[in-house]
């Protein structure tokens, strides 16, 4: 039986929802963070369980396996040190040439990376995002690039004290200006591909005359002010004309496996 109190409750709830939906973006984000704090105990519990599971798994690895991994890591380390030496030489040469040409020196971003653990993934199918265990207390703010050694992951948004949401490449809220590593260095805009194509994104607004071929690498162009130039995004899968032939559109296979990531790097400003 419908009562007057039900009408009042219905009005209140509908009004509350509409009020929340019409809140300014910053205020709405704060409200979300505050309500999400209800999940902090569960997040702590999940983090502890994850750590315990890792420690248990570590205890169960045999000595022989550990020695083998140790040897492999030693070799990798030696190789990386050699590559670092070579990269340092290139960096010096780059800086010298920049000085000669009168260009502004760019600070290397490899020293500004900070590791974060992925704590929660997006529960709805219409967004691409996850939550990391770094927040404003650690200095995270909105719009910081997030990456892995394989390539670009996304950027931070909705930052709480202990957690931050990362909007992934392929979400409509994370458009990235990208450049194809071909002869002409054509640039376009990375956007979402489709709800089921989790490892694919669309590179749109490529010039009609662009010579883009499958297998070519795509990196960040540095335009837009959020992502530094040269972070790998993926490789071109196929190209087709779009917008009634006004521009080209390429499907790009992402370099970073976004749906299985457990740890990512946040790039500090």
């Amino acid at each position: 039986m419908w009562k007057r109190s039900h009408s009042v409750a219905l009005g209140l709830l509908a009004g509350l929802s509409l009020l929340l939906l019409s809140l300014p973006e910053e205020l709405a984000a704060r409200f979300k963070v505050a309500f999400g704090a209800l999940y902090l105990p569960l997040l702590g519990l999940a983090g502890a369980a994850h750590q315990a599971a890792q420690e248990t798994a570590g205890l169960m690895v045999s000595r022989r396996e550990l020695l083998r991994q140790n040897e492999q890591l030693r070799r990798e380390n030696a190789q990386l040190r050699l590559e670092t030496l070579q990269a340092a030489e290139w960096a010096r040469e780059n800086a010298r040439l920049r000085r000669l040409l009168g260009w502004q020196e760019q600070s290397p971003w490899r020293d500004r990376l900070r590791l974060a653990r992925v704590t929660l993934r997006e529960p709805t199918p219409w967004w691409r995002s996850f939550t990391i265990d770094l927040g404003s207390r650690q200095g995270v703010r909105t719009g910081l690039p997030v990456l892995t050694p394989e390539g670009l992951v996304g950027r931070t948004s909705e930052v709480g004290p202990f957690h931050a949401r990362v909007v992934l490449v392929g979400d409509a809220n994370c458009r990235v200006s990208a450049q194809v590593l071909n002869v002409t260095g054509d640039t376009g805009l990375i956007g979402p591909a489709g709800p089921l194509d989790r490892d694919l994104v669309l590179l749109s607004y490529l010039p009609r005359t662009a010579v883009v071929r499958p297998g070519q690498a795509v990196v960040t162009s540095g335009l837009g002010g959020i992502f530094p130039k040269g972070i790998p995004i993926g490789t071109v899968v196929d190209v087709r004309p779009a917008g009634d032939g006004l521009y080209l559109e390429a499907r790009v296979q992402l370099a970073a496996p976004l749906h299985v990531l457990e740890e990512v790097w946040v790039l500090w400003p």
Binding site: L21, F31, L38, Y39, T124, W127, T131, R165, V167, D171
Partner: peptide, 19 residues
Amino acid sequence: LAMDSLSANPVGVTSLPLL
């Protein structure tokens, strides 16, 4: 609200369809 706080949804958007 719980769903919206853990997802990228704007806050309050899941309550109305459920209601």
